[in-house]
Computed example of a mutant assay.
Amino acid sequence: MSEETTKYDASNIQVLEGWEAVRKRPGMYVGSTSERGLRHMVFEVADRAVNEVLDGRAASVDVTLTPDGGVCVVDDGPGIPIDETEGADDPGLEALLTQMQAGAGAGGRHDVTLGFCGVGPAVVNALSQRMTAEVRREGVRWVQEYARGVAATPLTEAGTATGSGTTIAFWPDADIFGAAEFSFDGLEERFRELAFLNQGLEISLTDLRRSDESRSVQLRFPGGARDFVAFLDGHEAASAPMDIIAFEHEDPRMAGMMEVAFRWRSCPEERVRSFANSRPTVDGTHTVGFRDGTAAAVTAYAREQGLLTATDPDFGADQIGEGLTAVVSVKLDRPEFEGSTRAVLGNAEVRDCVRQAVQDRLGRWLREDQARAAVVIDWIFQGARRD
């Protein structure tokens, strides 16, 4: 290899300024330039609106896929502050939509991040050929338009407003996303999760892209995790030998609260869904604690009933999962995630807190409803023998 081909100096360094870096490498910010990236853009815009509802400043969020390929997100909160002087903690409208946010930290228990990294709506603006904002605040309606990350018009007063709230609409840039389209089902799945995990949240999702195939869903679940388990079981609920065990519990040792719901039904598949601060997780101390707690409760009850002898080993966490449907959700003031994807919860104290709470509730149910407990224990014994 010649010296000329290996030469590397300052002339080889490319400096990207402003939003050019985001548009050059969009996958670094929204995951991909496929449908998955488009879906993440919706979540980045809806993030703020959802948190307005959870903070008690708004009642609902409406998301609409429009006929011209855009997305419109509406909330009925107080309206985004118009300038920096109006809100002590919140950026003004133009700053929010044109300046890169510092990025989502771990967040407290009340801070919900819909997507995987929380880059903010300004990144969505940068990847959109057009974005519009309407703020209804203190009786005045304000509007502004943007293009590819920068303001295209000044913030303009546009008359009086009826009620309050914010509407943000955006149209993804076809030069970046090509012919990719939003998936209604993909958006519905994540918004449904959020509505299950946050009982006060109401989200509507409407698809107007095709006049002959319009769709709309209203997502609100006062039963929380209990409703989630029932949804996961679907028609198989009829085969369940027990009602859903569901509880919420605040534990200061983990600086947070847990919401857990579960039951066994007469089929071999295991469905355990776990979440930390409304973020889906694949594993973590909360799921380990849940499995430890169920195994400990079943073992203790089986010994009380003489179903296990002194020489029989305890049930292992891997032996009680057959036929189990569960939702394990924790909301922590200081969550600690392992890895950049935040898919594994690492808070060590959570394991024992969840284990103890699950063991107490399941143990109580087993002792109080012994007829149905016998059916569940027999099912678990059969599964253990098959293993």
Rank of each mutant, 00 (worst) to 15 (best):
152 A>H: 01
321 G>A: 08
279 R>Q: 11
366 L>C: 05
52 E>K: 11
111 D>S: 12
257 M>A: 15
117 C>F: 08
190 R>A: 07
9 D>Y: 09
183 S>P: 11
232 L>E: 15
352 D>P: 00
386 R>F: 02
115 G>F: 07
277 N>M: 07
250 E>F: 08
86 E>M: 13
235 H>V: 07
81 P>N: 02
189 E>G: 14
60 S>I: 09
344 V>S: 00
198 N>Y: 05
177 F>P: 00
211 S>A: 01
99 Q>W: 09
283 D>C: 06
188 E>W: 06
140 V>N: 02
380 I>M: 03
296 A>W: 00
103 G>K: 04
372 R>L: 06
72 C>P: 01
86 E>Q: 15
148 R>D: 00
101 Q>R: 13
37 G>V: 15
232 L>P: 04
209 R>V: 00
38 L>E: 00
48 R>M: 12
89 D>R: 07
37 G>M: 07
134 E>P: 01
294 T>W: 14
74 V>K: 12
319 Q>N: 04
21 A>R: 02
310 A>L: 11
57 R>L: 07
1 M>Y: 12
246 A>W: 14
364 R>C: 00
17 E>M: 04
54 L>D: 04
204 S>R: 11
111 D>I: 14
217 V>Y: 09
270 E>A: 15
42 V>E: 13
186 G>T: 07
375 V>R: 15
9 D>F: 14
351 R>C: 03
